[in-house]
Design a protein around this nucleic acid. Structure first.
Lengths: 351, 351
DNA sequence: GTGAAAGCGCTAACAG
DNA sequence: CTGTTAGCGCTTTCAC
């Protein structure tokens, strides 16, 4: 009911006014076809005169192109408050704009499947979560899809761009093992998160390699309350008093761990080393500052978008991409929380 | 050339497979029309069997609805690094998702007009800038448009949602006038910014009302380098040594002003009061902390989206909106930079 | 060089 | 109750 812009001037109007056929008008405006410069100019003129603007819809229907890529996140609204998501978006938008593409933030409101393919040429799924039904649905439309971060087990395969968590975390682990750590604890997201899977893998490999018995505490990916972590870690610490290293996924967990360790009357960064697989300003200001992996959100977003455009340009690429992985380097900021006994003083030194 | 998804199953396929006409299939899936529950179910079944997903393009072309709203910013990529823009987006997305709409960040890459209407039902222009040709172009497509913040002089009219800058700034001015300020300086964006226009208006009114002669320094809206502001303010301060109050638009300008005042061997917050018409964490940490207007970015974004949906639902609203203004309250955080002589000590007190 | 016509996938009249 | 038809605005053969 609502619509059909009445004043809308269409290609047909332009054609009629310019005294050419509708096909010719199309060609003229698009700089296509062979025609006298005169005709072309005349059409262009009448188009501007009439205030003609091409309908992206009509064009899209015909060409199969929408000139937009979509991004999906399980909860875009709250995610927008994190620097990670914001930087990711910035990276993706930068690439999209470079291709003169719009970027659509897909509504994640749909409780039930919508059964309507979004009006985009390809989709980036940020932080794919196992129980995100909408993400799964998006992957069934046969649009090219690239996931920003590892897919959890059991999700359909698609192209994946991930930070090099293994490389980054291994440099942290190498540092702490030198300091004689021998009872590590990892606090990681559960099996709904591919990131969590990867972190646990790296951790397990390292434990195995060094003959250590690590313990594991799984939490939901979206948990963000430091106090909850504080009590969980306290529980772990009571159960295993020998724990001397805590590796956390989220920054909230790291902060919670710091407090929990202090609660035990032990000194974080000396008695118990702490490191985090992600970073934000709170870790720098923490006491002691926490060694952390700086996730390259912006590069990730850019890399996802770039790959998507490759797939758009080359169907063969699109066909091969599912299952493939690209990796973006991640750097580690070493701070007092892993400086250990050797420089323990610096952890609490003040200017 | 690129396209035409070959495997794409269309409504026609479903209709054929279900043994009904294409129109009936459409009605069945949409829960429209009157037909036996049996037929409807059969169609639905075959649809899922075949993996049918409706094309948003075809539907959009027909209905004139795209189920997406667009946002435009002169430079979305860099703006994304500001909390303001991010919060604005979050507000708009929240409302959009509530209506089950996608939100498209329009590409601002286009050096020259694209002459193609974006695939959206309405547009939000964030921070409309006078020399933003793309924004002007967007306003010519006859889509409903709402601007987030005041339009600069000379821009076509549209619906405007703005923070209540007048209210907020006036409470600041009331405070400083009590402290005997009598030579104020305002540093505001130039005529390209409607926000700047508004701030200057409020400032001028206040000066006139109190019989003060204020001075004005105009800068570009996008200027963000505190050092540049530092030297500009220094120039002003040299030219008019009596300046005892500086009102800035941007936080960078406020920080620059602080330094410039100190450069003169005077104490900001005591000898020269400073206040800012926008806020961010840097002003809280500044020395002294700067009194600032807390721009309600999220509410602004939400209000823009909300109005847009009203216009979408009601053509009459859309017709009346251009030229209309809605206002969102803005709060002031009073801090040491305007505490003046009475409590000057607190401006430089340290724990 | 230019025009006519088909059709992208869908919905909305109107027949039957 | 269901099928047919006519487009939405555009691009793209293919005739002329």
């Amino acid at each position: 009911m609502a619509d059909k812009r009445p004043g809308r001037v269409t290609l047909k109007d332009v054609a009629k006014a310019a005294g050419v056929s509708i096909g010719t008008a199309s060609d003229a405006l698009a700089g296509r076809g062979r025609m006298t410069k005169q005709t072309r100019d005349r059409v262009a003129e009448t188009a501007t005169e009439l205030g003609y603007v091409a309908s992206a819809l009509g064009k899209g229907l015909r060409t199969g192109r929408t000139n937009a890529i979509g991004v999906h996140h399980q909860n875009a609204v709250t995610a927008l408050s994190t620097p990670y998501f914001r930087d990711f978006l910035a990276g993706a938008i930068a690439i999209a704009q470079h291709h003169d593409y719009d970027l659509t933030v897909l509504s994640s409101n749909w409780v039930e499947p919508r059964r309507t393919a979004p009006r985009v040429d390809g989709i980036i799924i940020i932080d794919p979560i196992g129980d995100d039904t909408r993400a799964r649905e998006l992957m069934t439309y046969d649009l090219p899809v690239v996931a920003g971060e590892h897919l959890p087990e059991g999700m359909p395969k698609c192209a994946v761009v991930a930070a090099d968590h293994r490389g980054a975390v291994e440099t942290i682990l190498a540092t702490v093992i030198e300091q004689g750590v021998h009872e590590p604890l990892i606090i990681s997201p559960d099996r709904n998160s591919g990131w969590g899977d990867e972190l646990r893998r790296v951790f397990d490999d390292w434990c195995a390699h060094n003959g250590l018995v690590g313990s594991l505490r799984e939490v939901r990916f979206a948990d963000r309350d430091p106090e909850a972590f504080r009590s969980w870690v306290t529980t772990e610490l009571r159960a295993r008093p020998g724990i001397d290293f805590i590796l956390t996924a989220s920054t909230a967990a790291a902060r919670g761990a710091l407090r929990a360790v202090a609660d035990q009357g032990r000194v974080p960064g000396r008695d118990v080393l702490v490191a985090c697989c992600s970073d934000d300003p709170s870790l720098l200001q923490a006491e002691p500052a926490v060694t952390a992996v700086d996730l390259p959100a912006r590069s990730l977003g850019a890399a996802c978008a770039r790959w998507l455009f490759e797939m758009l340009d080359d169907p063969a690429e699109a066909a091969n991409a599912p299952g493939a992985l690209r990796t973006v380097p991640a750097h580690v900021s070493f701070r007092a929380s892993t400086s250990g006994r050797t420089t323990a003083g610096s952890a609490i030194v003040r200017p």
